[in-house]
């Protein structure tokens, strides 16, 4: 190899190594730019989640207050009225049975008040249970004797805030069916499949056109958004008759 060739190789090698240096620096910059964008999106998602959680808490509290108001008026109020009437009867013609019935009615009213006060507790989120709230809601709807609602539950080990968001998703889904589908029966199934919680909400109502943009209201948008925030998916399918809502949520931790 003559001298000129050797020099030529050294210059080529130097240029190559310089390009390697420039390439490494460019790669680092691109990598970091992507990393920052990912962190920004993650932060945005977290903010959105916090916002949605706050909204969900307010909605649930409002809903609870309405339920409490109705319960006081329809249930506890009636029990107290009955007690008053029974005591009045006992005052006019004292009878042990009448007084005992009045005492039992008052005891029932106190029990109802205790369970109501639980739902108004300040630490309600810490005590929130998806299972208990869903069962209470099913009981309340069944009490109307217009619609039959059944539920198959599984024990849930999700954090309380995620349980609350999930509860609002399921509540929104069957409220939609109640409002628009006129069903006689709603069935909710919860099951665990490979670390995912599957929730199927089936009704035998009129169903609705899944492609109709007029039916893509706030309720459905809320369900989609909240399910996505929990990292899950939601699907609507036409039932025979009615509608089936299929929700899948990953269970972490």
């Amino acid at each position: 190899m003559d001298l000129a060739q050797e020099i030529y190789i050294i210059v080529i090698a130097s240029v190559f190594l310089l390009l390697v240096a420039v390439g490494i620096i460019s790669l680092l910059l691109v990598y970091q730019k992507r990393q920052l964008r990912y962190q920004f999106e993650k932060q945005q998602l977290q903010n959105q989640y916090s916002e949605e959680l706050l909204k969900t808490r307010i909605e649930t509290q409002e809903y609870t207050l309405n339920t409490v108001s109705r319960e006081i008026h329809d249930n506890i109020g009636q029990l107290l009225n009955s007690s008053k009437l029974l005591i009045g009867v006992a005052q006019r013609a004292p009878q042990p049975d009448t007084l005992q019935t009045a005492a039992d009615t008052l005891a029932l009213a106190i029990q109802e008040l205790r369970s109501l006060s639980k739902s108004l507790n300040n630490e309600w989120l810490e005590q929130f249970s998806f299972t208990e709230n869903l069962e209470a809601e099913v009981k309340r709807i069944n009490a109307s004797n217009k619609i039959r609602m059944t539920v198959e539950q599984v024990p849930l080990t999700m954090p309380k805030d995620r349980q609350l968001v999930l509860y609002r998703i399921v509540q929104e889904a069957f409220q939609n069916a109640l409002k628009h589908g006129e069903p006689s029966h709603i069935h909710i199934t919860l099951r665990m499949v490979n670390g995912h919680l599957h929730i199927d909400i089936t009704d035998d109502g009129k169903g609705f056109d899944l492609q109709d943009p007029a039916r893509q209201g706030f309720g459905i948008t809320n369900i989609k958004l909240r399910t996505a925030l929990l990292g899950g998916t939601v699907q609507w399918k036409a039932g025979h008759p009615g509608t089936v809502v299929l929700i899948q949520i990953p269970i972490t931790g």
């Binding site: 050294i10 090698a13 130097s14 190594l17 390697v20 240096a21 420039v22 620096i25």
Partner: peptide
């Protein structure tokens, strides 16, 4: 660090030979 990488990689072949 980028400047040092640029200089030391760019000059490496010269130093070596």
């Amino acid at each position: 660090s980028c400047v040092l990488l640029f200089y030391h990689l760019g000059s490496f072949a010269i130093f070596l030979t």
